[in-house]
Write a protein that binds this DNA or RNA. Sequence first.
DNA 1: TAGGCCATCTGGTCCT
DNA 2: AGGACCAGATGGCCTA
Length: 153
Amino acid sequence: MEMQGRLVDSTFLDFVGDMNLVEYSLGPKQQVDNTPSTPDNQTRLDEPSWSIGLADDVSTAQLCSEHLTMGSPRYCRGTHGHTKSKRRRIITVVQRQAANVRERKRMFSLNEAFDELRGKVPTFAYEKRLSRIDTLRLAIVYISFMTDLLENT
DNA sequence: TAGGCCATCTGGTCCT
DNA sequence: AGGACCAGATGGCCTA
């Protein structure tokens, strides 16, 4: 994937070289692997502490109050700020887990798309893996550059 | 140690 | 009703 640089003429490489995006140092190690479920996550899924003792028809509001003791505000969001609540969608633990799985799959496909995009934008071989935001920014610059190139030839 | 990046969870909203 | 999408929150990992 770092081969893309060779496919692009030196003009663009000079162009890219001027960008702040290419300030990465050596260090090819992947920062994060994109596997959707690490062993850590598996344990989290396997034993969802927040689901213990919850009946299927427990509302999320109840869930919230029950888990204030967990000391983690992440389990109690959505109601703060606006006490006037709209109708809440009752969701079971099973549905929540299914939604989490879908969300992980969705993010996985999103990351696949990012990887594909990384393969399309030119980078130097020694560069660290582009972050998602840098991939988008570089793609924007790359497209703009190519557009200009086409219009001026 | 602070900051950046990421995975994951979660609730809200939109759409079918 | 339920899935897709989105954004906020949180915690972990890595690097300067």
